[in-house]
Nucleic acid binder design. Structure first.
Length: 430
RNA sequence: GGAGAGGUGGCCGAGUGGCCGAAGGCAGCGGUUUGCUAAACCGCCGUAGGGACAAAAUCUCUACCGAGGGUUCAAAUCCCUCCCUCUCCGCCA
């Protein structure tokens, strides 16, 4: 979301920087509506001033017990006129807002220009890709052979793109959640949050899922609630409509939540296994910072997500998304991709973004800078978030990277305390 | 779900049609006084949008007393709808 004044004054510039990202934005309508809004606003304010003055005059006359009928009639006419102009203003503003909410964020200058995923830029790699004597199995085979993943029953209970984990698989999922949360809270300084999993329309608009992407969301039938597609939504909205004190920043939160996505338009992609589900678990990192420190924070946050993979000894790489592959709300995004032996490729396991003031403007999240004694003007915070990590995909990576020739899976040593000391999952594990 | 009571500035709290962007208090900021601390006293102290000024300081206008409508020349105040909070009852993990 853009500041409407800034939008009006820099329309062409914004349009140029957005390039292909702004292809479906009706720029001419925006320009026209912006001008109309300004005109109507000025008119309403001027008429209101007249009305206020006139009403004061009426009050004065009546106190003085002088006749006021004429003044009252004049004000009545003026009031009707105001109602008229206000009506048009309201209409213009509604349309304008609706359009403005659908303009994507401006990419940061450091983001590579490109049209799709093929033009993303690799930043670094970590870890050693494991070698196998036999072809590595996909995780669903490993999991089903071990009796810890059950897609047939998940389909019966719910449908396609759902999973059931049992026994050591369920425990491994829980171990990963606890390990991630513990790491982020005790070593990285995040405050743990358990938020609502359903949110209202205003929250979804605040983080940018609405109004443009309603089709991607699960929505309740009888209430205007949506299932969260990521903890980013409720956690960022923790501070919606707030003015934070400057020295409370940065505020760092972590939350484990299930996430719900309709995956409309992804038919035929990743149809097997845990990679793409309607419901999955994720540990999320969310940060609120001052504008001058948000890019520093993006590096830090990405590092926190990476540290989980390093602890688990999982090989990964970090890429910078190009302008064409970035999400709607982001100014800059790093994806972290973990190595999946069965696919012989890196797959996304975390996405870390700086939204700059884009979400803060939508959600009205400000801070008051603390520059010495003087109270400074409020400004919008910058918001960031990143997966730290997608739990299901982490489990996939563990099954695939640590699979053994006998079909068992070794458990990374940092997780073993969370698994009651279990060192590997075998067919006989209860 | 039923019955009732409420939602006012960072907080507490007054305000039942005009002189109310809103008394008073607390907190905060600046100052005076003062061996230090404290106290006392004085001043400042909401957000947003527009205009004036080259710009800043500043001045000025408009809006905002949970949200949205309505009545009225005029609404924090009256009416309607919705949201939220609290109390009691019912149901419930």
């Amino acid at each position: 979301m853009y500041d409407l004044k800034a939008l009006r004054e820099n329309l062409d510039q914004i349009r140029a920087v957005l390039g292909r990202r702004g292809n479906d934005v009706p720029w001419d309508d925006l320009r026209k509506l912006s001008d109309e809004r300004r005109m109507h606003t000025m008119q309403v304010e001027q008429l209101r001033q007249e009305l206020n003055k006139g009403s004061e005059e009426v009050a004065r006359l009546r106190r003085a017990k002088e006749p006021a009928d004429e003044a009252m009639a004049a004000m009545k006419r003026l009031g009707d006129r105001i109602k008229n102009v206000e009506g048009s203003l309201r209409q213009v503003e509604e349309t304008l807002n609706n359009l403005a909410l659908r303009i994507p964020n401006l990419p940061h200058a450091s983001v590579p220009v490109g049209s799709d995923a093929s033009e993303n830029v690799e930043v670094r790699r970590w870890g050693t890709i494991p070698s196998f004597t036999n072809p590595p199995k996909p995780h669903w085979e490993i999991g089903e052979n071990l009796g810890i993943l059950d897609f047939d029953r998940a389909a019966r209970i719910a449908g396609a793109r759902f999973s059931v984990m049992t026994g050591a698989g369920a425990r491994l999922e829980r171990a990963l959640i606890n390990f991630m949360l513990d790491t982020h809270t005790t070593h990285h300084g995040y405050r743990e949050v358990v938020p609502p999993l359903m949110v209202n329309r205003a929250s979804m608009t605040g983080t940018g899922q609405l109004p443009k992407f309603e089709d991607d969301l699960f929505r309740l039938k009888d209430e205007d609630y949506f299932l969260i597609p990521t903890a980013e939504v409720p956690v960022t909205n923790l501070h919606r409509e707030e003015i934070l004190s400057g020295d409370s920043l940065p505020l760092r939160y972590t939350a484990y939540t299930p996430c719900f996505r309709r995956e409309a338009g992804s038919y035929g992609k990743d149809t097997r296994g845990l990679i793409r589900l309607h419901q999955f678990n994720k540990v999320e990192l969310v940060s609120f910072t001052t504008p001058d420190r948000s890019y520093e924070e993006l590096e830090r946050l990405t590092g926190h997500a990476e540290s989980i993979l390093q602890s688990l000894m999982l090989p990964y790489r970090v890429i910078t998304l190009c302008t064409g592959d970035m999400g709607f709300s982001a100014a800059k995004t790093y994806d972290i991709e973990v190595w999946l032996p069965s696919q012989q490729q890196y797959r996304e396991i975390s996405s870390c973004s700086n939204f700059e003031a884009f979400q803060a403007r939508r959600a009205n999240i400000k801070y008051r800078p603390t520059t010495g004694k003087k109270e400074a003007k409020t400004d919008f915070v910058h918001t960031l978030n990143g997966s730290g990590l997608a739990v299901g995909r982490t489990l996939v990576a563990i099954l695939e990277n640590f699979q053994q020739p006998d079909g068992s899976v070794e458990i990374p040593s940092v997780l073993q305390p969370y698994m009651g000391g279990m060192g590997k999952i075998t067919k006989d594990t209860p």
